[in-house]
Write a protein that binds this DNA or RNA. Sequence first.
DNA 1: TAGCAAATTTACCGTCAGTAAGTAAACTGT
DNA 2: ACAGTTTACTTACTGACGGTAAATTTGCTA
Lengths: 228, 228
Amino acid sequence: MILRDEHKDVCRQRRDREKAQRMASIVEAAKKVFGTKGYLKATMDEIALAAEVTKPTIYLYFKAKDDLFFSLMLPLIDDIRAELQKVESHLRAGKIRDGAGLITAIFNAFYAAYEHWPETFRIIQLFQQQGLMGELRPEVRSALNDRGRANFHLCRQLLATGMELGLIRKVNVYEMADVVWGVLVGIIQLEDAKFYDRKDKRTTENTLRLAEKLIAEAMTIKTRGKRK
Amino acid sequence: MILRDEHKDVCRQRRDREKAQRMASIVEAAKKVFGTKGYLKATMDEIALAAEVTKPTIYLYFKAKDDLFFSLMLPLIDDIRAELQKVESHLRAGKIRDGAGLITAIFNAFYAAYEHWPETFRIIQLFQQQGLMGELRPEVRSALNDRGRANFHLCRQLLATGMELGLIRKVNVYEMADVVWGVLVGIIQLEDAKFYDRKDKRTTENTLRLAEKLIAEAMTIKTRGKRK
DNA sequence: TAGCAAATTTACCGTCAGTAAGTAAACTGT
DNA sequence: ACAGTTTACTTACTGACGGTAAATTTGCTA
């Protein structure tokens, strides 16, 4: 007896669901193991064990260790973009009154992502190394670059708009976007390294807030100050 | 015939020289290989080949891969300290007139080290990862921390003195020192990652200078401005 | 020259990323 | 119901690399 098309479809949908489920469990396991052990000490066997499958099964879903690692970064990058887009709509709606507000909002967009998934954030830092960037296969690398670039583009747009609106002073937007991202990554990374045994979230936040305050003050256009 | 003590000494001195020479050649090879391939892709065999010895020979001079890696960082850390000490003596001698000058001097102290040994600087960044920090044996890690801490201490002292002298505004020195170091490392690392194929030194420097300018301006005490 | 000490190498081990080959289940058309 | 196929997964392996033990060469001493 021939199965009705609908029946086929239903079965296929279930299998697709199961496959997605398996993939998700691998990703979850990877997040846990990479997050606690770091890239080097994490083994594929351990991740497989945590995901309740065997190692080769992982290789059905991910081409390589770095591929799996990379897949953890995408949601974070996309989350940052979502946050930046929120800032953009606020800016367009005129809800951001001064330069300090804009800088703080941009900082918060990145910081929120870090607070959400600190371990994934750390993963990005690892990839910002020539060593690991070179390791990536070209497709993977370009995918990563594209997404990252999109975020930087959005960030630069925010800064440019802020300059046009007269909220912040005019500087090179490319450099400025890099300063923001560099400050965030650099400080988070430094604090992580300093307190790698007793993770002290508050110190990290305080330091970040100081950096944010300084940059915000320097970027804010003083209504009656000198231009130099 | 018994050799005179002087003869023995001369021979021993030569052998010591040769040993030091061998060690230096291993270090040089390691610098080259780690610098181009990164920590992960660099193999001990490749370093040994570049140093024109075999792998076990390296292990006569360095306990482990991370030990060798670590040894590359020490000169850099010490160099930064030397630069910071120069700044300190300038500051004490009253050669630094304003806050911007002090911030610039501190930035330059770190930046000079980067310009001197960019590949070694990248190595430090690699170690500022939880993953690699955890990899280090405790002795190595604590030695690294001690040296690093000394630099931070010096940097904080500079900032504190600058505050006492009324050159820069009063903020938390611990946080401020972290901001300086974080900004430098974060930006250098970001630019390295962005232009990992076509290393563009100038872009990196421009971005760093912008960050420096912003921080310097925000930290400088305005003689006739509002405090807010 | 024999004997000793240091320096270096050859040959090996354990671990881990990645793969080839096999298996068991579910699906397919007759 | 049943043979053939596809899908999902596993067992068992390979190769590369960090690190080491044992053998070997080199050079000094008497």
